[in-house]
C-alpha cells in the first residue's frame, strides 16, 4: 500500500480515538511496518485457543467475534468495525485467544507480530506512546461498556445498585428486562464484551 493510503487510514484511526494525543506520522510508521492481510468473507483471522502473539489493526471491513459454546456451536460476542484494534488483551497478557475472529465481508488488517509489539510498547519514541495511547483508549472503551452492561444487570428500577441476590424477584425482573434490551441493542465498533450467550452463529467457515 502507498504511504498516502496509510496516511488516510492512520487519520481515520486517530479520529476514532479523539482523546488520544498522537501524531498520525507515528501511526503511519507503525502501520507500514506491519504485515498487511486481506480477508475474504467468512475467513478466520484468529482462532480461540491460539497463542496471543499478534496484534491486529482492522483498517477496512468488520470482524465477528465468536466463542465456542458447550453445544458445539459458536456464540456471537460482538461485531467490530474498522477502524479498530483486535487481539490486544492476549498479546498484553501473553495468554491464548479467548475468542475466534471471522471476517463479515472482505476486510483488511495489518498484523503486528510479538517481537515488534514488545519493542514498540516499551519504546519512549513517538511510535511507543502512540501505540500505548491507542491501546489505552481502546481498552478504556471496552471497560466502560462492560461496566455499563454489568451495572444494568445489577441495578433495580430506580437505578440503585443491588448486591446479587438470586432469590430477589426484583433482580430477576431487572435481569430479564436487561436481557431484552441487550438483544435489541446495536453493536458499537469496540464492543467486545459478552452479549447474548444464547445467540448461535452457524455461518463460520471451517
Amino acid at each position: 500500500m502507498s504511504s498516502r493510503i496509510y496516511q488516510r487510514l492512520a487519520q481515520g484511526f486517530l479520529s476514532a480515538h479523539p482523546y488520544v494525543v498522537a501524531e498520525s506520522d507515528a501511526l503511519v510508521s507503525i502501520l507500514s511496518a506491519c504485515t498487511p492481510r486481506e480477508l475474504a468473507a467468512g475467513e478466520r483471522l484468529c482462532e480461540e485457543g491460539d497463542p496471543g502473539i499478534e496484534l491486529y489493526f482492522l483498517l477496512r471491513g468488520a470482524i465477528r467475534v465468536l466463542k465456542a459454546n458447550p453445544s458445539g456451536g459458536h456464540t456471537l460476542l460482538g461485531t467490530v468495525e474498522a477502524p479498530a484494534l483486535l487481539g490486544q488483551m492476549a498479546i498484553l497478557d501473553r495468554t491464548r485467544r479467548s475468542a475466534t475472529c471471522v471476517a463479515v465481508d472482505t476486510a483488511l488488517v495489518v498484523v503486528m507480530d510479538q517481537p515488534s509489539f514488545g519493542q514498540t510498547i516499551r519504546s519512549t519514541g513517538s511510535d511507543g506512546h502512540t501505540l500505548r495511547r491507542l491501546l489505552l483508549s481502546s481498552l478504556t472503551r471496552q471497560l466502560v461498556h462492560s461496566n455499563a452492561r454489568l451495572r444494568s444487570l445489577t441495578t433495580d428500577r430506580s437505578g440503585q445498585f443491588v448486591p446479587a441476590d438470586p432469590s430477589a424477584a426484583e433482580v430477576q425482573m431487572q435481569r430479564a428486562r436487561a436481557m431484552l434490551e441487550v438483544q435489541t441493542e446495536t453493536q458499537t465498533p469496540v464492543d467486545l464484551c459478552l452479549e447474548d450467550p444464547t445467540a448461535e452463529c452457524p455461518d463460520v467457515n471451517e
Binding site: Q88, M89, L92, D93, L136, L139, T140, Q142, L143, S146, N147, R149, L150, L153, T154, A164, R175, M179, C193, L194, P197
Partner: peptide, 16 residues
C-alpha cells in the same frame, strides 16, 4: 485495564 476488562466480562458471564 486488561485485567479489569477480563474481570468485568467474567462477571457479566456469571450474571447471564
Amino acid at each position: 485495564l486488561a485485567q479489569r476488562v477480563r474481570a468485568s466480562n467474567r462477571a457479566i458471564e456469571d450474571a447471564w
